[in-house]
Computed example of a mutant assay.
Amino acid sequence: MTYLLLSLAFLALALVVLAVALATARDRAAIVRRWWLPVLIAGVLLAVLTAVFDNVMIGSGLMTYGETTISGARIGLVPIEDFAYPLAGLLLLPALWLLVRKRRPE
Rank of each mutant, 00 (worst) to 15 (best):
A88R: 06
W36P: 11
V56A: 08
L5M: 13
L49G: 08
A95M: 03
W97Y: 14
P105C: 11
G61W: 00
R74Q: 07
F10E: 04
L15M: 15
V52G: 04
P105H: 06
N55T: 10
T64W: 06
A95S: 11
V48L: 13
S7P: 05
R74H: 11
D54S: 08
V52Y: 15
K102T: 12
I70V: 15
N55R: 01
W97C: 03
T2Q: 02
F83P: 11
L11T: 13
E81T: 08
P86V: 07
I70C: 12
L77D: 04
A23C: 05
R104W: 08
A14M: 05
Y85I: 13
P79I: 01
V39E: 04
I41G: 06
L46E: 03
R103D: 14
L90I: 01
L45Q: 06
L91I: 09
L96I: 09
N55E: 06
M57T: 08
L5F: 15
G43S: 03
L87S: 11
V48S: 04
L46H: 00
V56R: 10
P86H: 08
G43E: 01
M57E: 07
L22H: 08
N55M: 02
G61L: 00
V100I: 12
F83G: 12
L6Q: 06
A14S: 11
A95K: 04
Y65I: 00
